[in-house]
Amino acid sequence: MRQVEWNGVYPAVTTKFKANGELDIPTFLKNIEFQVKAGIDGVVIGGSLGESSTITHDERLELAKAVLESVGAKIDVILNVAEGATHNAIELIQRASEIGVHGIMLLPPMMYKPTDEEVLEYFISIAQSTQLPIMIYNNPVDYKIEVTIEMFGQLKEIENINAVKESTRDISNVTRMKNHFGDRFKILCGVDTLAMEELLMGADGWVAGLVDAFPAETVAVYRLVKAGRIDEALKIYRWFLPILELDISPQLVQNIKLAEVITGIGTEHVRAPRQALKGDERLRVLAILEKGLATRPQLPDYLNI
């Protein structure tokens, strides 16, 4: 079993579709190849950006298998699990384990506002059903369920719950987690617009969105920060921020897929009920992207620092 370190940049990759709605595996893998060349450390498949709510278990496993066969020896391949029933999550994770997935990103129970006790039992039952390492996704802003410090205090006893995707939008939560648990949980920022700030506060990694279109710039920011070259990272990050803000939108999938088109490593096809951007909103997003491309910074040799 591959040892997942939960360090570095983990793109939350988009799911590529053909115009008829079928999976587009060649285009999906083209994007993955660009990510790997830029120096990413792993990918998260079938997350919110991967249009999790519209793809089947079979499809997300097909995507994972394609990545495992293509670059699985080079990067961590993490499958997102967002289910409403414990047994459905366990079944999906068992199938993921059978094809060789390296780890799991696990959301609280979906489609129902559970109690803290129910969330904990869900996480613990699933973790005990598998040997795969697990990263908990803590996003109370979008999913209305917070995994609190007290809850993590109970989860720390579960050996294969190793990390958290920190999306509370509260930068102080990085320090709060470090103060309570030291290095027991790896912390990966899950909000593009707070990434450099959370890395400076000690976050171990970045589950990124706009990396799907701008992989080199994303990895450069991460590696420069970790190398202590803050001024260089900040210059890139300040250029990047107007683009990164496209991640904190209800249309983040459409925004980022349009960005992938602009940078030549994706398509805009989405699954209904989503629709591609149009009208004034499309023009607004295009203007942000085009300005960014026109002023794209020269990157240092970040892969060798």
Rank of each mutant, 00 (worst) to 15 (best):
A127S: 13
I75D: 03
V119I: 15
G84N: 06
E117L: 13
D116N: 13
K74C: 03
I99Q: 11
E121F: 10
G46E: 03
L120S: 02
L68S: 01
E59K: 04
M105I: 13
M111R: 13
A85V: 10
E69D: 12
R95K: 14
E98C: 11
V67F: 03
L132T: 09
A127V: 03
H87K: 13
D116R: 15
M110C: 13
G103Y: 05
V119Q: 14
R95H: 15
T56H: 08
N88K: 04
I99M: 10
L120D: 05
V101A: 02
I126T: 05
E51Y: 05
M105S: 15
I126R: 01
L63E: 04
I55A: 05
V67T: 06
D58T: 14
E121R: 13
A96R: 06
N88L: 10
E117M: 13
G103K: 03
L68G: 01
A64D: 08
E121K: 14
Q131M: 12
Y122I: 07
L107V: 14
Y122C: 07
K113A: 15
D116Y: 08
G84P: 01
E51M: 08
G50V: 05
L63Q: 08
V119A: 14
H57E: 06
I90T: 07
M111Y: 14
A85C: 06
I55C: 08
R60E: 05
L120Y: 15
K113M: 15
D116L: 06
P114T: 15
R95I: 08
E91I: 04
I104Y: 02
K65Y: 02
K74H: 05
H87A: 09
S97Q: 15
L68T: 01
M111K: 12
A127I: 04
L63D: 01
I90E: 08
A85P: 01
A89D: 03
Q94A: 12
K113E: 13
V44D: 03
Q131P: 07
S48Y: 08
E121I: 12
I104R: 02
L68R: 00
M111H: 12
V81E: 02
S53C: 07
A89K: 03
K113T: 14
I55H: 01
P109S: 07
I134Y: 05
L132W: 06
A73D: 11
H102S: 09
G50H: 04
L132G: 04
Q94L: 10
L63W: 03
V119W: 02
A82T: 03
L107M: 13
G50K: 03
S70I: 00
I134E: 01
S125W: 11
E117P: 00
F123L: 11
M105N: 08
L106Q: 02
E83D: 10
K74W: 03
V101R: 03
S53T: 13
V77M: 08
I93T: 01
I90K: 13
F123I: 10
A73M: 04
V119T: 15
T56K: 06
E59W: 02
R60C: 14
Q128L: 14
P108T: 14
V81C: 07
I126C: 08
I45T: 04
I93N: 00
Q94K: 14
S52N: 10
